[in-house]
Design a protein around this nucleic acid. Structure first.
Lengths: 99, 99
DNA sequence: CCTGTAGTAAGACAATTGTCTAACTACTAC
DNA sequence: GTAGTAGTTAGACAATTGTCTTACTACAGG
């Protein structure tokens, strides 16, 4: 079973977060999680292959935006909301509100 | 004399703005402009060549973040603050406040 | 006109990125 | 066990990106 690693948010730079959110696919993931709460990867509709999807989750995780835990064969993912609001106040709101 | 073109902010996607802000150099530019107001390109200290600097301003301009006008040999640049606050509320504050 | 300053344009280059397919691991259900 | 489902890994590939050098335009001041 895969063991996911999550960065300490204090050590994530703004540029890293911006970079992670610079892809429409990844913005869609963040929005889906924010609106629907914890989800498995495959519960979010995306027009890319399984491997690409996995890659996008990797990027978001490395940027400290999401938290992933394993449950059976699924990887349940959620937004690191509290921490994010502390480290980058206004970021999530921006992503959710901007059109 | 160069004629700069500036996009209509309504047509700029969040991903484009995020992409533009995903480079530390460009974040530094935005911060400098926000703190010091309108500036010429060369008034912002950056550790890159003239050409690279010009490129970063291009990217920021194309993403709708900055406005450039010519004055003699200088290109005076400022943040499109009012419009940005309307189109992406919280964005500038985020960039300025995040460490 | 000459020199200097501010910036752009073109081209090259290595590094990064987004995507895919194919093969793999790990769990669930029968 | 065998199948099926969920996701990862490895490798490849084209496209994009950030950087540079060199050469250029355009203005300012003598």
């Amino acid at each position: 079973m895969k063991c996911y690693s999550h960065p300490v948010l204090r050590e994530v730079a703004l540029a890293d977060v911006m970079q992670a959110l610079s892809d429409p696919c990844r913005i869609a993931i963040v929005r889906a999680l924010a609106e629907r709460g914890e989800l498995a990867c495959n519960e979010i509709e995306l027009d890319v292959s399984k491997a690409t999807r996995s890659h996008h989750f990797d990027v978001l995780r490395a940027a400290g935006l999401i938290y992933t835990r394993t449950e059976g064969t699924k990887c349940m993912t959620s937004i690191r909301e509290t921490e994010l609001n502390k480290r980058f106040p206004g970021l999530l709101k921006l992503v959710l509100s901007a059109k």
